[in-house]
């Protein structure tokens, strides 16, 4: 097992975004130089953080990256990750786990927008809140997350699981507007409240265990399961998805 600790150095302009898609476990085996972009300037990772390696391995499955300090402005950590683990001890910036295929990312703070965008496999656990577009697709993309799982212990922003096509997204807090909009498949579970969930869905299953504060009017009530109301829809979109809710403000 190799543990690589990346400790962020103080920065002269801490608001400048850093793009760091090369921070994935396989890039820390051997002596490969890892590069990042800070604004429009390319730097070595050594310019922005202190790197400490404990242990030595040959395969990325046994690499664990620990991100320490302020990583809230660092984007694209874990992009295309295919093995190993990343633990973020605080907050993480946008696009963490983009297109991730395998491995595990654990975020002990909050995650910014587009967490696990178009993820294919693997596991993301966020102990805090996640921003907008958690588990969604890129602009104009017809399929979002296609596999793997995202679990958010806190709340998520708007458009969570947009275009969800496969895999699962579990939100233990509340979801903003339009969670599960355009769902094509997969499972979305929201333990808290939601507004206009699963709008325009085609397939898949969305469960809201809290209150649905507003509901899209074009879901057809088909029955009850385990004390929850089951709808089919979105009828406006000729959809055949399942929306299961505990309570809704809708009057039939």
């Amino acid at each position: 097992m190799m543990r690589v600790t990346l400790t962020m150095k103080p920065r002269s302009n801490p608001f400048l975004p850093i793009e760091a898609e090369q921070i994935i476990p396989e890039n820390f085996i051997g002596s490969r130089q890892v590069m990042v972009y800070e604004g429009n300037k390319e730097h070595s990772l050594l310019n922005i953080c202190v790197i400490r390696r404990d242990g030595n391995v040959n395969t990325p499955e046994n690499v664990s990256l620990i991100l320490r300090g302020d990583w809230s402005r660092v984007k694209r950590v874990g992009e295309y990750m295919s093995s190993g683990t990343i633990v973020v001890e605080g907050d993480i910036g946008m696009h963490c786990g983009n297109f991730m295929r395998a491995g595990k990312i654990e975020i002990r703070g909050n995650a910014d927008a587009w967490l696990g965008r178009e993820m294919r496999g693997g596991v993301i656990v966020c102990h805090g809140d996640a921003g907008d577009y958690c588990g969604s697709g890129y602009r104009g993309e017809k399929r979002g997350m296609r596999g793997g799982s995202i679990e958010v212990m806190g709340n998520v922003g708007e458009f969570a699981a947009e275009y969800l096509t496969g895999g699962s997204v579990a939100v233990h807090g509340n979801a903003g507007c339009f969670a599960g909009v355009e769902m094509r498949g997969g499972y979305l579970t929201i333990d808290g409240d939601a507004i206009l969930p699963a709008a325009n869905m085609v397939a898949g299953e969305c469960v809201v265990k809290g209150r649905v504060l507003e509901m899209v009017p074009t879901f057809e009530r088909v029955g009850e399961e385990n004390g929850m109301i089951v709808y089919h829809g979105d009828i406006a979109n000729r959809g055949k998805g399942r929306l299961i809710v505990r309570s809704t403000s809708r009057t039939e």
Partner: peptide
């Protein structure tokens, strides 16, 4: 959404 459902003949699902 409601207008889309009505236009395609599924006004039965649309609330009052």
């Amino acid at each position: 959404s409601a207008l889309r459902a009505i236009v395609r003949g599924r006004d039965d699902v649309v609330p009052a």
